[in-house]
Each structure stands twice: as structure tokens, then as C-alpha cells.
Design a binder for these strands. Sequence first.
RNA 1: GGGGCCGUAGCCCAAUUGGCAGAGGCACUGGAUUUAGGUUCCAGCCAGUGGGGGUUCGAGUCCCCCCGGCCCCA
Length: 947
Amino acid sequence: MGAESTDAVPRHRYTAALAGAIEQRWQRYWEERGTFHAPNPVGPLADGELPDQKMFIQDMFPYPSGSGLHVGHPLGFIGTDVFARFHRMDGRNVLHTMGFDAFGLPAEQYAVQTGQHPRKTTEENMRTYLRQIRRLGLAHDERRRIATIDPEYYRWTQWIFLRIYDSWYDEQADCAKPIASLEQAFAAGDVSTSDGRAWTDLSADERRAEIDERRLAYISEAPVNWCPGLGTVLSNEEVTADGRSERGNFPVFRRNLRQWMMRITAYADRLIDDLDRLDWPDKIKTMQRNWIGRSYGARVHFPCGDSAIEVFTTRPDTLFGNVALILAPEHPLVERITADAWPSDVDSRWTGGATTPAEAVAAYRRAASLKSELDRQENKDKTGVFTGTYATNPVNGERIPVFVADYVLMGYGTGAIGVAPGEDQRDWDFVTVLGITPVRTVQPPAGHPDDTPYPGDGPHVNSSHENGPSLDGLNIDDAKKTITAWLEEHDHGKGAVQYKLRDWLFSRQRYWGEPFPIVYDETGAAHALPESMLPIELPEVDDYSPRTFDPDDADSMPSPPLSRAGDWVEVELDLGDGPKTYRRDVNTMPNWAGSCWYQLRYVDPTNSERFVDPANERYWLGPQDAHGPNDPGGVDLYLGGQEHAVLHLLYSRFWQKVLFDLGDVSSDEPYRKLFNQGYIQAYAYTDARGSYVPAEEVSESDGEFFWNGQKVNQEYGKMGKSLKNVVTPDDMCETYGADTFRFYEMAMGPLDVSRPWATKDVVGAHRFLQRLWRNVIDESTGELRVTDTEPSDEDLRALHKTIDGVRGDYDGLRFNTAGAKLIELNNHVTKAYGKSGTPRTLAEPLVLMLAPLCPHVAEELWSKLGHDNTLAHSTFPVADERYLIEDTVEYPIQVNGKVRSRITVSASATQDEVKATALAEEKIAALLNGEPRKVIVVPGRLVNVVL
RNA sequence: GGGGCCGUAGCCCAAUUGGCAGAGGCACUGGAUUUAGGUUCCAGCCAGUGGGGGUUCGAGUCCCCCCGGCCCCA
């Protein structure tokens, strides 16, 4: 831009350059004065007086990605900032900050490729991230920034792990308790040992095993997705439908491996039931309920040789139709019950072509281990092999064959099912393949096809036995009650609740995560390290990748990166038995660990004595009377994307509840109110060859799109480098300033709705700020142009209506309509005073109301209006009711639903007066033919005359 | 396949929750400023709410069916 053109612009116009200067100045001001420091009740962050009303606002923990931010990332951050600034201006003590969920795979993979320590990469990324968000003017308390990779942070993550490890779930009391009380309970006989022997009869090792088995954090042989080609276990999400790793496309095997587990299932009921006390979107609550998947049914024992197979079913009423049993391929009884030889009359469809049951089962199990769980559940082509063994159906004494089939999963129920083809599609498909005849136990309605199961309700049939119960004629509910009572009475089983939720696999064979504060002695027994040894810091290693194997070597064992840090792994310690050599646990915690409790650390980030001081925790997170008697407490607003609907939010709730049970925190839920923001998406364009072209260089003409003269194809979706459609907040700050960007981003639409980014629309927000600026400042002289003129009655009505509306909008996270109302008021001011100067009584509240959305320009104008202090605290205007009440009301008058005329009456007119005036109105009277059939008067709204 | 959410002007979105379809922005048109373009300012223009049926005095809003899009579960 040349000198000539800048001359044309008035010197004091609100341009991007001026905006940039203002923004930097105020960002420095806020930082230097600690404007957004939120005082704590106690500790280093305490600072004199404490407002009684607090507001704790939290964004979902960002991962500091290396590729930088695009305009979609800060949408939620700006939203929470506007909300936070509004409440701070309304007098509340507002805690809002941001830290980093900084452990994770991308930095580790980068380290594997380049040899650069993941900490270095991560810290660089965090700096970039902070620089980018700092430009946006987010009012964070920067003293409270934390990162999960800081040893002073993960020290407490490890501490919480030990708290969980050191507790058990007391079913009677329905809460977690310290492990010491379990020992007492065992000794007193309140809790029985696994084999029923008396506690005093157990050896020390046996006692330890009993206790270890009941811990909330425990080691188990759990089936996991083992990927030898990558050298690590994978989460289900990382495995493709055809049973291979998403990354690298290596085979993935279901293997039992010793892994840390968290007993989240102990909390299944509370995690479901407490959802009712949360102010969360119904959608997320539903997703959590479905994930936990509570169902009521029965556990039934089917005698089988000298053992018994336990089955869980949600339909015990269909037991008479159980024509077979199925064990999951991983079921521990499979080997024991598999027969030596096929019965002489075995059906060829049952043998898998093998000469003995053992061969058939072994081959089948091997094939099943190659399939993903998803695949096993979804596959419509059912398979299975006969074990050569029969079990006895307890309700009728019939001999039924026992199969192994992979659509039965070990992780759900007991890993064994009774096959009820008459009422279940999967079972129907299964028996069809194996040539077994289905038996219906519920009579389908007339017209139901003969070749499909009937899962609906109806009278039971074929459901009685001389020595057993009779369900015939009963509906499902009554049949379930009857059969469950019968099973319990005859000791064949009992009513049971089943959950889809499984315990949480808590170890990973990675480098870049929290080490476990656990060592193993020479017998392999785990020992917790004392609190005084925390944090257990990550050792330096030469190679950040786990050892990998032949991709098809299913029997290989994981060898995590930490296992090769020899000096670190072998450690001599005195854990009470004198100095001994121990081996450290070489796994690391999963990425979720650090984000399970960060709201607690934000509250007291510098505390070196405790993970959080109870006084600070109670003040910021404790239950509050204002929220009613059942208030769970927690963060006042938690904002983030829906992608964390289940895992993070469930894990976090679980940890919170454990800490609550142990008396470490005062609230039993971490997040009282949850809000999901939408996503900003973008158009992308491909040329004739399908390559992406730079979106910013594409122009539209008559609904078609062109780039460099050639026609291109429009796509809609994510913003990303590979799609060549990235717009960054830095670009927007450069072109328009952060305030314009903030305003536009909030004005685009409701916060919870996804929408397309449109750079060309941003200018509208910029023009608004220019007009508002001009209403306060003379563009050419820079002088204030406010006056002491008394505002008109109309002005005051417009002003107070805006105050009233904007307050409600800010509080309800409706920033788009708040912005529109401010534009409207500003347009009113421009029209009335654009030439003469704005009355101060209008200018000041307008500036204050703008501040949450556009804080820099608002501070600048506020200071130019003669105020020495920041507007950040306790300045938000309050509407005067007087100006919200109208003297007169205009009523549209409809005749048969169509507006035919209007009348203006006093606001105090009664319904009868309004009706009379309406009917007397000239045009309406002319349409009337005698008495109307009906006249509807909606007070304050309209009149409808029905002829 | 099951469940949920959403379709309002050329585009992004409002609509006091069943009461006058339009607040705000973009684009567009005209005018002012400017040597001109751009900027800026002022004024104006545009739909009857995806389609069909129902309830109601009255439906964008409630109910049913269909179409299109997104999400979750299988």
C-alpha cells in the first residue's frame, strides 16, 4: 500500500493497523497488571477479598498440535472468553485459564522419526499455540497454566493413580474405601475370600493376591489388541474393521496380556444414575447411558460334565428355546470341556472339517483372534464349531450341544450365551448355518414370516416342563419374573444386572506418557512406590519406539521403549523389607490420564503439598446452594466438542467419584454444565484431475467455481493443509484485528451449530466496529465526540431493551444475537447522532456491552471516555425496568388468520377494550357481517377475528 | 438396519417457544465521498420457511409420511 492511499484514510479510523496497535497495548496492560488473576481462598494465589459469587469456566484441554491453529480451533475458546468476561463484568470471581494435554502420540511419532525428544517438540508447539491464542485477547489467568507433561503435574497424576490403586469398592456401602479397610473386612469375615477360606488360613502371598484382585487399579490378563508389527497394544478405535492397524495396516491379534486395568465398572450404576443431576446436553447423556449399557437379566448355570457353564441373558424368559450354548473363543472353559472325539453321528457342518474337536476348536480360535471385535459382532455370516460336548438346560433337562462361535465376546456378560433363535436374529442366523431347528417360545402375531425370529412381546409357548416352571401364556415381563424366581429357588441362577461397560485398559507400550509409580519384586508382585518418591520421571532413552516384531508373530511379547532404559528399570529400594532390587513397570499411562483431573489442578496449580487444597477445591468446585439440594458441584461451564462425549467425560467422572469417595474432593461430579460447540468447516475445491487448488484463489460466477480460468469442483468439509483451504486466526488478526475476528466468529451463528467459514463475510464485523468507533471518536482528529446531551425517551428505550436482551444472550451463550443487538443499537445511535456527537449516556453502556465480544477496542474507548481503570470488573450495565415497559401496544388484526389492519392501544388496555377497538376499526368493521364467530385476543401480541 | 439432530432470502443466520416470517451480516442495486479504482458512508432489493398431509382461530414452531444433510449405535 503506497503513501497516497494511506493519506486517503482518516488518521484515526479504526483500521486493522490501529486495531493491532490497540490490541497489543491492552494485552500487555492486562498481563502486566494481572487483570484476569482470579483470587483463591487460600495459598499463594489468595489475594485479599474474595467475591462470594464465583464462576469456573473451562475449555476442553487442547493437544498442542504442531501444525498450528486454524480459525475453527479457537471458536470455543472465544465463546468461553466472552462468557467469562461477561460474568466478570457482572461482578463474579471468574476462573478461566488454559493448559495443555501434552502427552500423546504425534510428538512421540515425530521423535521416533527424527530422534528429537518429544518434550522439545511438545514445548515448541505449546509456545506456538500460546502465541497464537494470546493474539486473540483471551482473558486467562496465566498463573494457572499447566501441562500434563510437567513432572510437577504428573506427580499428582501418579499420586491419584496410587489413591485408586490403594482402594477397593465396598458394594455394601456403595463407595470406594482405602485398601486397609478391606483387610479388616476380610479379617472380620464381612468380605469373603475368593475360595471361601478364612482370612487367617491364607498365607501372606495369598492374602496379597486377594487384596490385589480387588483393587480399583489392578493388573489383569485382559484380551487386548496386540499389534506385533507396531510393537504395541492398540485401542479399539485404532483397529480397522478388517482387523488391522489403522496405522501401518499390520495384523492385529486379540491376545491376553498382563495389563493395568481401572475398575470403572464398579461405578457403572452411579455413572448412569448421576447423569440425571447434570446440566448436560441430552444427546451426550444418552450416549453415556448407551455406552455403559445397563441391562437387567439373569445368570443361569448349565451343567456340563463335571463343570457348569454360566450364561448371562437379558431374556431368561426364552430359556426353553435354548437349543444350544455358545462359548466365546477365549472362554477359559473351552479347553476343559472340548471332547476327545466327535460323536459318531456328528453333523459335518459342526466340525469345521477337522478330525477331532480339539483341532477344530484350535483352528477356530486362531482364526477368531485375527478378527476385530467390531468385525465379529457385525459379521452377518455366522460361524462356529462344536466342542463335541453337551450341556443340560436346567429348565427342561434337555441335552444341548456346546459350540464355540466368535460372535460371542468374552468381554460381555460371562462370555457364554444360550442360543435362543426364536427371539434373536443373530442366534437364528447361527442355527441356520449349523442346521439346528429353531424353537419359538414367544408366539409371533399373525402374519409374522416363518423364517425370521420374533423379538417382540407376546404370549409364551413351548415353555413348560413337568419338573420345571411354566411360562406358557405369560408376556415377557411376567415370564422374566417367574423364571428368575424359579432359577433362584432351585439354585440354577439368579437375577443379574449386566453392563456393556468394561474395565478401562490403562497401560500403553509407549514412551510419551506418565510412568507408573509401581515396581515389581523378584516374585513379580507389584509394589506401590511411596508418595515421597513421586514424581517418577521419564528416563532418557536412545530410541522412542517400542520393539517391533514380525507382523504375523502373534505370540511375540510387547517390549515397550521404557524396558530398554536399563539403569532406570532396575532400582534398589527399601520398601520396608530392607534394600532389595526391584524392576519398574515399563508401561505408561494412556493419554486420558492427565485430562481426568485437570479441573482440580487449575484450582490450585502451584500447590506442592497436595494435588489441590480442600478450601480452594470447595470454593471453586464444591456443590452450591444456588444450584439446589442435589447439586453435584463441578465446573460451572465446560465447553468442548462432542468427540469426547463418552471416553474422556466418563473417565473423568470416574476419577472424580473415586476421589470423592476417598474424601479428597467435595463434589462427586467434575462438570456441572456441559456445552458442545459446533465446528467451523470450509469449502475446498478440486480441479479436473482431482487435485486441490488454493481455496482463497477460487472465484464464483453463476453458481460455478473457477480457479485460474478453469472450472473447479466445490467440496465441503474440514479445514486442513491438504485441502488447501486453511484460514488462520493470525491471518484474520493481520487483516482485520482480533476484535473483528472474535466478533465475526461469534456472530456467524449459534455456538453449538457447525457452519462454513466465509472470509468475505468478516468485513461486516469490521465495518460495525468502525461505525461504533466513529460514534465515539472523530476519525480525523482523534478527539472524543461524545456530548452531554440528554438522550431521548426513544434512545433510552432502545438502550435498555438492548441491555436487557444482551445480558440474557451473553448468559445463554447466544453470542450471535447479542452481536446483532449491539449492531442494532449502534445503528440507532448513528442515525440519531451520527452528525452531532453521541450522548455519553449512550456511548458508555454501548462500549461496556461490546467489551465481552471485542475487549481491546472496548477498553480503548472506555479509557478515551476518561476512565482510568480497566472495564473488566463489575461494570456491566443493568437495564432499568422503566424503559422496558411500553406505554402503547400496536396490535395487528387478523381476519381468519390474515393481517387486515392494525390498531394502537394503551398497554394497560384490557382484553375486552382491545377486542372492542379492533372490531370498531374501520377496515375490520367493513369486513364484518354481523357478529364474528370468535375473537381471539393474545395480550400484547395480536387480535384474530374469525368470521 | 435402529436412534437422534437439522433443512427459513443467492449465502451465513434471527423469529419473545403456537401469535405480524426478518433482527444482524455478506452478496447485489442505486446514491454520496474520490481524478478513478478501492475504502468509507447512506438508501434500497430479495423468500413465505425442503415436499406432502394433519391438528388449530392461527404452524417456521406440534403430529404423520417422503426427500436431502450431519451425528451416534449396530
